[in-house]
């Protein structure tokens, strides 16, 4: 048993409305999991709970053997949970390079960062990531001026330099061209094994191209879980999607 993440019977209610309803989910280390479901199924809320942005009404979240249910966001990040938001979120006034610098794995204390200098290794890590996400030539450009797809990649790059054990990626290919989508699939697939990755995505071609296991959420509950083929054939899943 090497469960990296255990979401145990978690309920989140917003004024009585249950965005997550007694949801239980287990992730093994090194897994690449796709999370699908219609709008409002609770996919983003689940990531909010795991990262400490939203506190569950009941239930527990364990990461790497630790109870992280009530920890603040930055502590959870420090334990090794990285996140890419649904809307691409980068620091618009900073350059691409600085965006990556701020995301680097390492000490996040004020006193350290007042005197921090980039080490050769850190610089290498940033350069390598810039190559990987194809933004090397734009390193000095302000991130706010990037195109939508470039921002998506920058945000994925920011996740990579953070070296998290668990990556939560919300809709990474929204707004990307077909070529960009394929490249993103490659990057994410190459991460599995070393990292544990959870991808939320609406683009089914994309999900099919990377997924090994798919979890379908519906109205805050797990509707189906398993290999893509089985899930797609599940009558309940078809019903929910056609009914939506």
């Amino acid at each position: 048993m090497s469960a990296l993440l255990k979401v145990d019977d978690v309920t989140v209610s917003f004024d009585g409305f249950r965005a997550l309803d007694h949801l239980t989910l287990t992730l093994e280390a090194g897994e690449l999991r796709c999370l699908v479901g219609p709008n409002g199924a609770g996919k983003t809320t689940l990531q909010d709970v795991i990262t400490g942005k939203t506190r569950p009404t009941s239930g527990k979240v364990h990461f790497d053997g630790r109870d992280i249910t009530r920890l603040p966001e930055h502590v959870i990040v420090g334990l090794g949970v990285g996140r890419k938001f649904q809307r691409p979120t980068v620091f618009p006034g900073h350059t691409v390079f600085e965006n990556l610098e701020l995301s680097l794995h390492g000490s996040k204390a004020v006193t350290r960062n007042l005197f921090a200098r980039l080490t050769a290794e850190e610089r290498q890590a940033i350069d390598g990531t810039l190559d990987l996400i194809g933004l090397s030539d734009l390193r000095a450009k302000a991130a706010g001026l990037l195109s939508h797809g470039q921002k998506q990649w920058l945000e994925i790059g920011m996740l990579l330099v953070q070296q998290p054990k668990l990556l939560l990626v919300d809709e990474p290919v929204a707004g990307m061209t077909q070529a960009e989508i394929e490249r993103t699939a490659e990057i994410l697939a190459s991460l599995a094994g070393k990292h544990t990755v959870v991808v939320v995505e609406h683009d089914m071609d994309f999900v099919r191209s990377i997924a090994r296991t798919v979890t379908v959420l519906h109205e805050g509950r797990v509707l189906a879980e398993g290999p893509m083929k089985d899930v797609q054939a599940d009558p309940q899943v078809i019903e929910v999607y056609l009914g939506a």
Binding site: V77, G78, F85, G93, K108, M158
Partner: peptide, 19 residues
């Protein structure tokens, strides 16, 4: 740079691990 990042997009700064 963390300060200016916080001015622009505070939640993201938290998710970069900064208190």
């Amino acid at each position: 740079r963390v300060l200016t990042a916080m001015r622009d997009v505070e939640p993201k700064v938290r998710f970069c691990g900064y208190d």
